[in-house]
Amino acid sequence: MPNAGALLAEIYRLAGARDWAAVEARCHPEFTIVEPASLPYGGEWKSRDALQRVAAAMYGSWASAKVEIHEVTGGKDWGVVVLSLTMTSKRTGRSLTQTICEAGRFEDGLLKELRIHYFDTAEVAAEV
């Protein structure tokens, strides 16, 4: 079985292509994504379609948002994606870029949890 980094990279590729059925097929039935609680789309999102729902909520919070994946790495159970997210505020028109690390844990080859770590959630929350 591929390592968790390779599995996570495939899920991100599919999510980028908006192939949500394929993303869901790679998520555990008890999948949970955790966004920082201080953000409007923060908290725990559960079920196989959670990644699609949180992506819609996050992108919908901004006038525009662009993801640039820098690197994906992983071991047996955990994978980490390092990315930049450039967001433009609907409220102020200001653009900001944050480095984000997204840590995914796999169980039986399926993504069971994804934890999102922003560099500065206060800056992001102030612009939403």
Rank of each mutant, 00 (worst) to 15 (best):
G93M: 04
D108S: 07
R94C: 01
V67P: 02
E127A: 14
R115K: 14
G43D: 03
E123S: 15
G75P: 05
R91M: 08
W78E: 12
C101G: 10
H70N: 08
K46M: 07
T73N: 03
M58N: 08
E68G: 06
L85K: 06
R91E: 12
D120K: 05
V80R: 02
R105Q: 14
E113V: 02
A56G: 07
R94P: 02
T97C: 11
R48I: 09
S89E: 08
Q52G: 15
S47D: 15
L96P: 01
L83D: 02
V81A: 13
G93I: 09
L83T: 05
V54A: 11
W62Y: 03
A122M: 06
T86S: 15
K66T: 15
E71I: 08
E68R: 14
E113C: 11
L114C: 04
T73Q: 10
S84R: 14
G74T: 05
K76P: 07
L114S: 06
E113T: 14
G93W: 07
V82R: 13
G75S: 10
M58R: 10
V81M: 15
S47N: 12
T73W: 04
K112H: 07
A55R: 05
A65V: 12
L51H: 09
D49G: 13
W62F: 10
F106G: 07
S61W: 03
K112I: 01
S64W: 03
E113Y: 01
E123L: 15
G79K: 05
S89Y: 11
E68Y: 03
K112L: 09
L39R: 01
L110F: 09
M87D: 02
E127Q: 15
L111Q: 03
K112M: 02
G43L: 10
A65W: 06
T73S: 13
C101Q: 01
V82S: 14
A56L: 10
E68W: 00
A103C: 14
V54D: 04
D77L: 06
I69Q: 04
C101E: 03
C101Y: 06
G75M: 05
R105W: 08
L96G: 10
T92S: 15
S84F: 12
K66N: 11
E127R: 11
A103W: 05
A63F: 04
D120I: 03
T97Q: 09
A126P: 07
V54S: 10
R53N: 13
V124I: 05
R48T: 15
L111W: 00
E113P: 00
M87N: 06
E68H: 13
T97G: 06
A125P: 07
Y59N: 15
G74A: 06
R105V: 04
V54C: 06
A55V: 10
Y118M: 03
K90P: 00
V54H: 07
A63R: 13
L39I: 02
V72A: 12
R91G: 02
A126L: 09
W78M: 01
T92I: 00
E107I: 04
E107Y: 00
V54N: 06
S89A: 08
L114F: 12
A122K: 12
R94H: 09
A125T: 11
T97F: 05
Q52M: 14
V81Y: 07
C101D: 06
V82T: 15
T88K: 14
V124D: 00
A125S: 15
